[in-house]
Write a protein that binds this DNA or RNA. Structure first.
Lengths: 158, 158
DNA sequence: AAAAATATGTTGCATTTACAACAATATTAT
DNA sequence: ATAATATTGTTGTAAATGCAACATATTTTT
C-alpha cells in the first residue's frame, strides 16, 4: 500500500499554532467584551489575577507572574491597582531566605471575586453551550499536555 | 445513583479559557523567540501575514484582517512594511462594486516565504515531537469546532 | 573575604495594540 | 433625489505589553 505524499509545506494557517492563537484571541476578545459590557469594575486581567491570588494564598510576585503569564513589571502594576482598590494586601516576607512581597486577598476582594465569579459562570455556560462537559474536559487535558510538552522550550525571563 | 456535587465556583485558572490563553501565549512567545533567534528578517506576525496572502491571492485588506485577527489599522501597517520590503504588491480593485485595495505576493516574497517555511517546519517538528500527528489533528479539530461555536458571539469590529 | 552570579521587584521606554474618528465611496431608505 | 446607512481603508491616540536597566539583597564561586 502506497503512502500518500504529504504536502511539502504546510501553511501557517493550517497549523496547530494558528488554531491556538486564533481561538485564544477570539476567547480573549469575547472575555474583554463581556467585562466591558457588564461593567464589572475590573478588567479581565485584574479578575484573573485576583482569582489566582485567591487560590494561591501567600504567593510572591514572581511566582504569580509565572501563573498569569505576565512579566514581573506588569504583574506589579496590576497588583498596584488591586491593592489600591483594597482587594488585596501586600506584605514583606521571605522565600528561600530572600525578601519578597507576598500578598493575599482581602475580605472586600473575596466578596468582589465571588460576585464576579457568579456572573462569569453564567457567561461561561452560554459560550460553551454547544460543547458537552466531556468534550471540554478532553480539550482542556489535551491543551495541558501540549503546554507541558513545550513549556521547557520557552525561556520565560520572569 | 447519586450525582456528585459540582464545585460551586470554578476558578478561572481551572477553566478552558485559561488553558487556551496560557497555551497560546506560550506558543506565541516560543514563536517570537524562534523568529528573533534565527534572525529571519521578519516578525512572526509579518510571516503569518505573508503566508496568509500567499494562499489567498487577491484578498482585500479587510478580509485579510479577519483571517489574521488584527484590526484594519494594524493590518494596513503590516502590509505597509511587507510592501516596503517588496514582498507583496498592492493594487486597487473592486469587490461588490466597492473600491478595495487587494494584494498579492511577489516573486521575492514567495522566495522569502519558502525559505522561512522550511525553517519553520524544522522548528515545528521539534516542538511537537512528543505529540503524534493524530493527537495534533484531534486537538486542531477540537479547537476549530470550539472556535466556530463561539465565533458568532464575538463582535469583531473589523 | 572578595567577587561573581542569582533572585526579586521597580522604573523607564519603545513597541504593539485596540479603538475611535475621519475620508471616500456605494448602497439603501425615505 | 436626497438622506441615512454601510463598506473600506487611514490617521491619531491612549492603553497594554515586553524588555532592558537598575537597585537591593542573598547565594555561590574563587
Amino acid at each position: 500500500m502506497q503512502k500518500l505524499p504529504k504536502s511539502p509545506i504546510k501553511h501557517f494557517t493550517d497549523s496547530i499554532y494558528y488554531d491556538l492563537e486564533q481561538t485564544a484571541r477570539l476567547m480573549k476578545k469575547l472575555g474583554n467584551q463581556v467585562f466591558e459590557k457588564l461593567n464589572l469594575g475590573l478588567t479581565s486581567d485584574e479578575y484573573i489575577t485576583l482569582d489566582t491570588i485567591s487560590c494561591n494564598a501567600g504567593i510572591c510576585q514572581r511566582d504569580l507572574a509565572k501563573l498569569i503569564l505576565k512579566d514581573r513589571a506588569n504583574t506589579g502594576r496590576i497588583l498596584d491597582t488591586l491593592e489600591g482598590l483594597g482587594f488585596i494586601t501586600r506584605f514583606i516576607d521571605t522565600k528561600n531566605n530572600r525578601l519578597v512581597r507576598k500578598m493575599g486577598i482581602t475580605e472586600k476582594g473575596l466578596k468582589k471575586l465571588k460576585e464576579l465569579s457568579i456572573k462569569m459562570e453564567t457567561h461561561f455556560k452560554n459560550t460553551t453551550a454547544d460543547f458537552s462537559e466531556d468534550e471540554i474536559d478532553a480539550l482542556q487535558q489535551s491543551l495541558r499536555r501540549f503546554r507541558n510538552s513545550i513549556e521547557e522550550l520557552v525561556k520565560m525571563n520572569i
